[in-house]
Amino acid sequence: MTGKEEQFISEAFDTNWIAPVGPHIEGFEKEMALYLKAPGTVALSSGTAAIHLALDILGVTKGDVVFCSTLTFVASANPILYQEAEPVFIDSDPISWNMSPQALKRAFVQAEKDKKLPKAVIIVHLYGQSARMEELMEICKSYQVPVIEDAAESLGAGYKGIPTGTIGDFGIYSFNGNKMITTAGGGMLTAKKKSHLEKAKFLAQQAKDQADYYQHSVKGYNYRMSNILAGIGRAQLLALDERVEQKRFIYKRYEEALSTKGIEFMPEYEGSYSCRWLTVCTLPMDNNPQDVINNLQSHNIEARRVWKPLHLQPLFQNHNFYAHIPGNSTAEMLFDRGICLPSGTSLSGEEHRFVIETVKASLYEKSAQGAILSNL
């Protein structure tokens, strides 16, 4: 917390604006739109709700196909199932760790042959790093298929000077407890067309028609953010640039200390600017990420595996997947070797040094054990 949240929360209580309507919601939406240089935004209950609304507005329905990044959290793809549509998963590339333009192109070529182009493409900006939007957008535009940017993890990141989430037709953000800024739980939608923003707001408020009584002509949702949570978001937004600097500083210390141990960090390729939501890396080939995580846990340090690719999840086992190189999945390699290191902005210098030394020791112990076995 920044320390300024209480002021906004108190104002919400003092003015009795508690429900999902009120001045903080309007203020948060305007301030986010200004930060993003976007036409407008709609504050919602979650990033998942934002994806769901985007798919609904695009007319995605039963039997339709939606292409989606495979290396991501399940929330990126669950809304496809809400619409009874069919997800098709696209691999990562080694340059950005995000959606592979090569794999996306092959998926489109096959879809055209099958005469079943996707209704939308969901491109995820993973761990705070932008996808290769120029190449990906060029492909999608050539087939006239709209793009939804899942920028849940990348608020504060950019691509060629443009904020992530504002390049495609729709952009979504998450304010969950662990994101760049938080409203405890919440999300936001932005869109190129103001008509889409108006429809999103309409659908998110149970799709109430203009009438002197409650009348409903289409299916709606209860997806609006509360005025209290929007107040928290306004205070958090004031500190976003500082958070990005802190996250990038944390990453830099890891990179300087651990690159010599054979660790490779998530790239920040030319033209991109990562907010480094999490510091993520791959371990040397002879190290098992779970062994390192377990060793860190024994020292009361929490670390995680990278996202398990969605095409490997039991929920999606019967859905199509296009690899970066046929028979050679980048996402699977990253899952096999990847680890997310502690990246909280409350991490003290002493704690950070302890984490780094413990990671080094975990790798050293593995190397030492290997050396002993090879001499037996």
Results as ranks from 00 to 15, higher is better:
M1N: 11
G3M: 04
F8Q: 07
S10D: 14
A12E: 10
F13T: 00
V21H: 14
G22E: 10
G27P: 08
F28K: 03
A33M: 09
K37I: 13
T41F: 12
L44W: 05
L44A: 00
T48R: 15
A49Q: 05
A50D: 07
I51L: 15
A54P: 11
L55F: 13
L58N: 04
G59H: 09
T61Q: 14
F67L: 05
C68V: 12
C68A: 13
T70Q: 04
L71A: 05
F73S: 14
A75H: 13
E86Y: 04
I90D: 00
S92Y: 03
S92E: 01
I95S: 14
W97H: 03
N98Y: 10
N98T: 08
P101W: 12
Q102G: 07
Q102I: 12
L104C: 01
K105A: 14
K119Q: 11
A120K: 01
L126P: 02
G128I: 02
Q129C: 12
Q129F: 15
A131R: 02
R132T: 07
L136V: 01
E138T: 09
E138M: 10
E138Q: 10
D150P: 10
E153H: 09
A157N: 02
Y159I: 07
P163H: 12
G165D: 04
I167W: 02
G168W: 06
I172F: 05
Y173F: 15
S174I: 00
F175Y: 11
G185S: 15
M188C: 11
T190L: 11
A191L: 06
K193T: 00
S195H: 10
S195G: 08
F202V: 03
L203S: 07
A204V: 01
A204G: 06
K208P: 14
A211W: 04
Y223Q: 03
S226D: 09
I232G: 03
G233N: 06
R234E: 01
K247M: 12
I250Y: 07
R253P: 05
E255H: 14
E255Y: 15
A257T: 03
S259A: 07
S259G: 05
S259F: 09
K261C: 14
I263M: 12
G271H: 10
G271V: 03
Y273E: 13
R276D: 15
W277K: 11
L278N: 12
T279L: 05
V280F: 12
T282M: 13
P284N: 04
V292R: 02
S298M: 12
N300Y: 14
I301F: 12
R304K: 13
W307S: 08
K308F: 10
P309S: 06
H311V: 02
F316Q: 03
F316W: 05
N318Y: 13
F321E: 06
P326W: 06
G327T: 00
T330R: 02
A331G: 00
A331E: 01
E332F: 01
M333T: 11
R337H: 14
C340E: 15
L341T: 01
L347Q: 09
S348L: 13
S348A: 09
S374H: 11
N375Q: 15
